[in-house]
Structures are given as structure tokens and as C-alpha cells.
């Protein structure tokens, strides 16, 4: 039995404050627009397009993170090398840097004055004001989350399992697909969900690289600026609804993993 002293009530008070702080604005936002307005909003072609763009761009960003990030995550989980801390530090950078700075940094590399930008324009790739630009920015901010989750997954797979597999005649590639991947895929999937959630929520960096085509957060911002709170709310509700769905999916997946561990 916990002794109900000052410390106990102090912790309870803080917990309630934090819960209220997070939940109150969200509940208010979700309940503010009428059902009619919500319906009207989702029937608006511009809104639909922006949400669709947000989802597909974030999906592609997560997919790129998965393809490029998996080998790097594996490398970090399995090998010690000089400069590993530096590599991990670089991976963390997108989390630390202010979002508009990310947009500006990407534009400064993709611009015509930079050799990289010149190569891109020779290939006909445009970053400024394009879907490619949106995906680039989203990948930039999302990939750290994927790499961290995947690395954690690989860390949890004992290298001895891979050693045994090799000694039984499996090549490293077979070993990865037969042993490592089946044991780490939950973490990788959780990483993909985290990365896409992060990509969907990005505003500051995207708005600098591409105001148009409009992703959902930019549209919410625009409606707020032009028409006020009331008109931005329904779009926000739809976006939040989708993010919550992703979040729930993540939670169910990770809890399932924990339950499996308990069995062992």
C-alpha cells in the first residue's frame, strides 16, 4: 500500500496536469466542428487532395527510409568501428535541427548555384515546389526514427543465431532473410509507422520547400491564416484522425511484441 503523503499527491497532481495538458486541446479540437462541417470538408476536393498527398508522400518517405535505412541500421547494430558515434550523431541531426532550417538546408543544396542542384536539374529533377521536394524533406526528418527502431530490433537478435545459421551452411544473405528479418520485422514495421507519422506531421520544412502542391498541414495553416480557426479545424480533425489511427496501429503492434516476450 502506497503511503499517501505529500510525495504521492504531488506525483498524482503532475500526472493529471500532463494528461489534461495533452488531452484537453485535442478533445476540444476534435469536438469543435459539427458533423456536417466535417462531411463538407472531406467532400472538398482540395482537402482530399492535400490529405492524399500527405499520406502518399509520407508513405514514400517511409519506404525510402526502409530501403536505405535497413542496411545502415544493421551495420550499426552489428559492428563496432571508428567514427560510429559520429555516424549515430549525424543520424540524430534531423531530430535536433529546427524544421525551417531543414527546408532551407535542402534548398541550398538543390538550388542552381550548387553543383548538386545543377546535376539534379540536368536530370530534370525539381525540388522546389514539387512532390519530389516534399518527399525529400519528409525522408530527411523521418529516416532517423526508422533507423533507431530498426537498430533496436536488430540489437535484440543475438548474433549467435546468425553465427549458428552460417555454420549450418547458410550464406549471410540467406541468414538475414531466414533468421534476422523474421525476428526483427516487428521493430522494422514499428519504425516504418513512426517514420510515416513523423513525415505526415512535418510542416516547417515542407512549407519552405513546397507551399504548393499543398500537403494537409500546409492547407490547415493556409485556412487558418485566411479564414480563421473555424475553417482550419475540420481539416485538422481529419488529419489527426489519420495520425491517431497510425498511432493505434503502432501501439497494438508493440504490445503484441511484449506479450510474446513474456511467453519466453
Amino acid at each position: 500500500m502506497l503511503r499517501k503523503d505529500f510525495f504521492f499527491w504531488g506525483t498524482i497532481a503532475c500526472a493529471v496536469t500532463v494528461m489534461a495538458f495533452i488531452a484537453l486541446p485535442l478533445v476540444q479540437l476534435l469536438t469543435a466542428p459539427s458533423l456536417e462541417m466535417l462531411k463538407e470538408t472531406i467532400l472538398d476536393k482540395d482537402v482530399l487532395n492535400s490529405i492524399e498527398l500527405s499520406l502518399t508522400a509520407a508513405g514514400v518517405a517511409a519506404l525510402i527510409s526502409f530501403i536505405l535505412g535497413t542496411p545502415l541500421a544493421y551495420l550499426l547494430a552489428r559492428h563496432e568501428f571508428h567514427g560510429k558515434r559520429l555516424v549515430e550523431g549525424i543520424i540524430d541531426l534531423p531530430i535536433i535541427i529546427p524544421h525551417p532550417v531543414v527546408g532551407i538546408a535542402i534548398l541550398s543544396v538543390a538550388g542552381r548555384n550548387h553543383w548538386f542542384g545543377q546535376i539534379l536539374s540536368e536530370w530534370g529533377i525539381r525540388i522546389m515546389g514539387s512532390v519530389t521536394g516534399i518527399i525529400t524533406v519528409m525522408t530527411f526528418v523521418a529516416i532517423p526514427f526508422y533507423i533507431k527502431a530498426a537498430k533496436e530490433g536488430f540489437d535484440a537478435v543475438s548474433p549467435r543465431l546468425e553465427n549458428v545459421s552460417r555454420s549450418l551452411g547458410a550464406s549471410m544473405t540467406s541468414t538475414f532473410f531466414r533468421i534476422t528479418f523474421p525476428l526483427a520485422w516487428r521493430s522494422m514495421l514499428a519504425g516504418i509507422i513512426m517514420a510515416s507519422a513523423r513525415a505526415i506531421s512535418e510542416f516547417g520544412a515542407v512549407v519552405i520547400v513546397a507551399y504548393h502542391p499543398m500537403i494537409a498541414p500546409v492547407m490547415i495553416y493556409e485556412r487558418f491564416e485566411t479564414y480563421g480557426l473555424k475553417y482550419s479545424q475540420p481539416v485538422a480533425v481529419w488529419l489527426i484522425g489519420i495520425c491517431l489511427l497510425l498511432f493505434l496501429l503502432l501501439r497494438t503492434l508493440t504490445t503484441k511484441q511484449k506479450n510474446q516476450h513474456d511467453l519466453r
Binding site: 543475438s158 549467435r160 543465431l161 553465427n163 549458428v164 545459421s165 552460417r166 555454420s167 549450418l168 551452411g169 547458410a170 550464406s171 540467406s174 531466414r178 533468421i179 523474421p182 525476428l183 519466453r264
Partner: peptide
Amino acid sequence: EKRGISIVYQDYALFPHLTVVENIRYGLHF
């Protein structure tokens, strides 16, 4: 994988996602 040397670890390192018979059969695939 080309040595023909099997190793049994102290912690056995069984593949947790495979059944007993799948574990034993593992090397036969190669």
C-alpha cells in the same frame, strides 16, 4: 558456411521463430 563445422553455444541459440523440427531441419536447406 563452407567449412562443415557446426557449433553448439552455451545458450543453445535456437531459432525462436522456428519449431523444434524446423530448427533441426534448418541446415538441410543448404
